[in-house]
Amino acid sequence: MKQKLDYLDQLENEAIYILREVAGQFEKPALLFSGGKDSICLVHLALKAFRPGKFPFPLVHVDTGHNFPEALQYRDNLVKEIGENLIVRKVEDTIKAKKLQDAKGKFPSRNALQTYTLLDVIEEFEFDACIGGARRDEEKARAKERIFSVRDEFGQWDPKKQRPELWNIYNGKINKGENVRVFPISNWTELDVWNYIKREKIELPNIYFTHERECVVTESGQLMANSEYLKLDGSDVLTTKKVRYRTVGDMTCTAAVESEAYTIEDIINEIKEAKISERGATRMDDKISEAAMEDRKKSGYF
């Protein structure tokens, strides 16, 4: 017997199937949780996949120290509510322990530095699979990555050595020291995520909705929230704008967009009309070069 399935059901079914494959195939998986909408959706999907049992993995947050306080608050509330384990490792500690050079400049982004902390936490707990909320529509190198993406012991992605991945069959076999990055919502777009959040009535950190914020305008015209992490000088002008965030990364590399969107419906309408892509509008880290994401992935980024 068949039922006509909505596309959101199909995407949800696929994601739950992938999460259960992780649980079935790996000894020590982890779910990378950033406090952003994509990883919040992953937690929601994991509840559907494993309740009434506990998650067969902890949540892992790589804390850059440049987080939005609202996202941290949300994270702690969520973990308490669902009663799952949370492991937090701080980039600050990695910088000290490994004597790394901290990020510089006016907007000192620790985006690249978090790879060190991520690889350390994988080694510390011997994680063999890390579930992430990356989507193929975000970026063209991500559009090429498998759902089960095998990384060598240095965490590196080798696009030329990707395993064939066919049907519903996911090969998670690895040697000791290697790990697999798993992306259950690979096939979701930004709009799919919002439609799903709306349908499932998922609560989000309030910075996704419009609010007043003191911002500085960058040379390329992006709005960066003023915070203690920015190194502003006399030439910078601060203005207060009505903004919201399309992605929630670090305060130092995630730009806000001007918005009047109070509700999820408002956001969905805004995205439908938006002419700028999600990462294009908000991420400074991708602007460095055409292959910025590919290069970061090759060195262990998720």
């Binding site: 190198a141 991500r142 559009a143 090429k144 990707q162 055409e290």
Partner: peptide
């Protein structure tokens, strides 16, 4: 989407688009 593909002007691996 990969550097090697752009350099050589060929598609090497699957790209997913939506």
């Amino acid at each position: 989407g990969l550097r090697a593909e752009r350099e050589q002007g060929i598609t090497i691996d699957v790209a997913y688009k939506y």
